[in-house]
Write a protein that binds this DNA or RNA. Structure first.
Lengths: 263, 263
DNA sequence: ACGCCTCTGCGAACAGTGTGCGCAACAGCG
DNA sequence: CGCTGTTGCGCACACTGTTCGCAGAGGCGT
């Protein structure tokens, strides 16, 4: 179009410094895919926390522009939905055939959920906000397999759903608190002992009663990670104990009914 | 400075239309205080949800500029902390003298927490994100009084703390899911029945097994609010049952030890 | 080999966000 | 009257999520 000093044959229509060399050869680097985006988002979330996840920084880490992501993901909310489902795939939900092993299976299941929640500290946040609105394949599969544990144990579908709701509410609730606590510590760059030392006196003074502070001071002596695990197991066993009792009662009632029917 | 047609005596130093009448007489309207800010923030949160809370809109509702709020509140996070503590004041934590009435007291306590969480649907979100890092007066007071229920029941401080953690984790977890569910519905402007009708088939097709969808279809027939309350009570009783058993065991052991000591 | 057509990436832009800075107006004091 | 400390706020900055229209590239039919 315009006659510039460039000896190139085909004239550049735009600003002149757009030769073959300066121009980025885009398709060289691997393509942007939904899988790559989700994987990188998880990495970013794990490293920097949920506040650090922005489309621009995520795009940067992928060597792409921010808006390019929208070709593969409709919105940030949808991305979070995808990411959540992906992480749900890490859950360990044992399949059982022997009805008697239901308790162990639930134990493993609960611990697995807690571990995943602590590995990805943003997860519990998201789960709390969303309830059970996400219907990704992994979420659905996990729910089904979890329910299967309880139904093969002998619960009917109705009670199995309620029991599962109780159990996962508890695990999500307590792990959410744990993750929030740990990431708050990380943000401030403190260890748990340091924090207790700082806030213990403050707490003791705020409370006329010394009862609360007493516990905190006691925690100082033990390994905090171990303490939290102990607390988790305490509540878990509380729930499982009750389930065991109800199951026994139900099985006895069923057997009685069957005996009465056959007679 | 400039000679305009205004017969006013004192010349305006800045753009001319700054007379005594156009100038807002600020101190007429009641002052901005931390209490007013917190109260209005709660109102805004309840009406529009947590995403709608911005310093600008909050300032607007108070008839003030956005940055004026920062004279009374250090940051938005601190505001949320204040708001959370304020709402904690709504909780009903019965004080008991008769050790035998612990179960009723915890029942009331748990229901109260759920009600507050449903009244302020943003609360559970915040609680999940934060664990027990907020140390406002109401939060501390509630924690103490909740623990008091369990200690007067006969638990030692250590187990009381664990039991309380279990209980509140469960309530927060399940109420968080419930609130997330309800506010998602409100955002879409659907009733619960409508949603089940839409998503039920989708769910049934995603799951090869029809077990999951079966429950959802069953829910369609009953009052959803009642169903959710039933689910909540189921899990609550699960936990309280176990606590009752442990308490009985502990009391028996204590009595035995006392008898052995006195003999 | 050419033209075309769909797909993918991206720069610019828009409306909003939380928040620091410095200036103006006021209340209460001496 | 002036001084001083408190309170409100306009401006500005660095971000955010998201839309739009354009520019290349790959694949296809002819």
């Amino acid at each position: 179009m315009n006659t510039d000093s460039d000896p190139d044959d085909s004239a550049a229509p735009a600003p002149a410094l757009n030769s073959v060399w300066t121009r980025p050869q885009r398709r060289q680097k691997e393509q942007l895919t939904r899988e790559r985006i989700v994987a990188e988002a998880i990495a970013l979330l794990d490293e920097e926390g949920i506040d650090a996840l922005s489309m621009r920084t995520l795009g940067q880490r992928l060597g792409a522009g921010a808006t390019s992501l929208y070709r593969h993901v409709a919105s940030k909310d949808e991305l979070i939905e995808l990411v959540t489902d992906e992480v749900y795939g890490e859950l360990d939900v044992p399949e059982i055939t022997d009805p008697a092993s239901w308790r162990l299976a639930l134990h493993v299941n609960a611990h697995s959920l807690r571990q995943v929640g602590l590995r990805h500290m943003w997860l519990m946040n998201v789960l709390g906000q969303v309830g059970l609105n996400y219907l990704g394949p992994n979420v659905v599969s996990v729910t089904q397999r979890s329910l299967a544990i309880l139904t093969t144990a002998g619960f009917d579908m109705h009670e199995a759903a309620r029991a599962m709701s109780t159990l996962s509410s508890y695990v999500i609730g307590i792990t959410s608190a744990e993750a929030g606590w740990l990431s708050a510590l990380r943000r401030r760059g403190m260890s748990e002992q340091e924090w207790y030392r700082v806030v213990g006196p403050q707490m003791a003074s705020a409370a006329g009663d010394a009862g609360l502070a007493e516990i905190y001071l006691e925690e100082l002596k033990k390994d905090p990670m171990e303490t939290r695990l102990g607390n988790f197991v305490y509540g878990l066993d509380l729930i499982l104990d009750s389930l065991e009792i109800r199951l026994a009662a139900k099985l006895a009632a069923d057997q009685k009914a069957r005996a009465a029917a056959s007679q």
